[in-house]
Design a protein around this nucleic acid. Structure first.
Lengths: 144, 144
DNA sequence: CTCAGAGTTCAAGTAACCTTGAAGATAGTC
DNA sequence: GACTATCTTCAAGGTTACTTGAACTCTGAG
């Protein structure tokens, strides 16, 4: 198919050209060059960029994205199976993100005001804010 | 109650003392000072810090957190009702984060491989990757 | 062939979110 | 009273994720 210039890719992906060059430096996308040294991108790069942005928005770092994209073939357009594999690999990571959000909601909603956020077990079961009084490692709150 | 030193707060909250000072500069937490100018924190600050970390981990910025915390009283420990109000205000924001994760999962799982990520409507309904050939604003992928 | 618009590299800048280091003061224990 | 861990401020440095600017080259329409 027709190759995309960096400007076309950037516009269709909704990012700046500088970001595309940055992603390329990081190995997130790949290009071929014209005889005049200009970058040209496959249509499938659009999907890679979309993937990067979507993943970032849900709290993943570019390094995490790079690791996943590194498992895609550089030389051919990724197939549905390729993306499916990444999906499988990421499921636990994404579920963890959702779980954290749910936890934050739940704690905010019903528990944070009662003190259990600062204790290893809920204050309902362990009344009185006693942690820290009698040693212990010290609660690491809401972790992981 | 007993006030916490910055070191105690940091350890119990699972963050560095430098981070606590940084949060204080940003107005995320507040302290009183000893006659010797050392910071002392209320127990409730532990909950504020926990809140900050939890919110950050699900992709919210310190500015967003600061805006929410600004609605809590500085001079008294927040009540359950105070936290509940924040919960209510944040619900849509948190649900949006979850929605984004679900969208990413779903697209990865079943759709990204078929081309619909690069089109305004799914390629199943609009076969052939024609967007961009005939003008249009250019798809902004997976936004918002 | 010309020429504007788009592309190139490279270095430096920006913003968010902290950490590190220097130089010194405080606090609680013996 | 001394000693040591912990605290203070302030400036500078670090990482991630880009953006901006300068100086220059390429591409493609006329």
């Amino acid at each position: 198919m027709t190759l995309l210039t960096i400007g076309q890719l950037a516009e269709r992906a909704g990012v700046a050209t500088s970001a595309i060059r940055f992603y390329e430096d990081k190995g997130l996308v790949h290009s071929t060059r014209t005889t005049g040294n200009q970058r040209r991108y496959e249509q499938s790069t659009l999907r890679r960029v979309a993937f990067v942005r979507a993943a970032q928005r849900v709290g993943l770092s570019l390094d995490e994205v790079a690791a996943a994209l590194a498992t895609l073939p550089d030389n051919r357009a990724p197939t549905k199976a390729d993306w499916h594999r990444i999906s499988r690999d990421w499921k636990p990571r994404l579920e963890e993100q959702v779980r954290r959000i749910r936890l934050l909601e739940q704690r905010l909603d019903s528990c944070i005001g009662c003190g259990c956020l600062s204790m290893k077990t809920c204050s309902l079961m362990n009344p009185g804010d006693v942690i820290g009084e009698h040693g212990g490692t010290g609660a690491v709150l809401l972790e992981p």
